[in-house]
Amino acid sequence: MPGRSGPLSAVRSKLDTDSPLSAPTLRWGLLAVAVGAVVAALITVLLSGFDSGRVEAHTPGGAQPTGAVAGAAFGTAKQGDCLSWSKGNASDLVKVECGSKHLFEVTADIDLSKYPGREFGPGSRFPDSLRFSELRDEHCVSAAQTYLGGKFDPRGKFVVGLINPGEAGWKAGERTLRCGLQVTGSAGTATHPIAGSVRSTNQSKVFDVGTCVGIARNLPTDPVECTQPHAFEIVSTVDLGARFPGGPPTKEDQDKVMEDQCAKDSTDYLGSPDALRNKTLTLFWDFLDTRSWLAGSQSLNCLIGKGADQEGFATITGSARGDLQIDGQAPVPPPNNGRYTPPPLPGAAPPVIPQPR
Rank of each mutant, 00 (worst) to 15 (best):
S22Y: 06
A23M: 15
L31P: 02
T44I: 04
P24W: 09
D18Q: 11
T17A: 15
G49K: 03
S9T: 13
R27K: 09
D18I: 11
R27P: 00
A63M: 01
L46W: 00
S22W: 09
L42R: 14
A37T: 09
A34C: 02
V38Q: 13
V35K: 12
T25F: 09
A40W: 00
L21E: 07
I43T: 11
A57D: 04
S19D: 09
Q64T: 15
L30K: 00
G49P: 05
T44E: 07
G49Q: 06
H58V: 14
T59S: 10
S52R: 08
P60W: 01
T66P: 00
I43Y: 00
P7M: 04
W28G: 13
V33W: 00
E56K: 08
V35R: 14
D18S: 13
L30P: 01
E56F: 10
A37L: 06
R12W: 01
L30V: 08
R12E: 13
L47Q: 05
A23Q: 15
H58A: 12
V38M: 13
A40L: 10
L26M: 15
A41L: 15
S48E: 13
P24M: 09
L21A: 14
D16R: 13
V45Q: 06
A40K: 12
P24F: 05
Q64V: 14
T25N: 12
G61I: 02
R54F: 06
A40E: 14
G61H: 03
A63D: 07
T66C: 14
G29H: 04
P24T: 08
K14H: 10
S48W: 02
Q64G: 11
T66V: 14
A57K: 04
A23W: 09
P20V: 01
A41C: 12
T44G: 10
S9I: 11
V55A: 12
R54I: 04
V55R: 03
V33M: 15
L46S: 12
P65C: 08
P60G: 03
P60V: 05
L30W: 04
I43A: 05
E56W: 07
L26G: 14
T17C: 08
G36I: 02
I43M: 01
L15K: 11
K14Y: 09
P65D: 07
G36K: 04
F50C: 03
D16F: 03
W28F: 12
A10K: 09
Q64L: 14
V38E: 14
S22D: 15
F50N: 05
A37Q: 12
T66D: 15
G36C: 08
T25I: 10
G29Y: 00
P60N: 03
A57R: 07
Q64D: 10
W28S: 11
L8G: 04
A10N: 05
P65V: 05
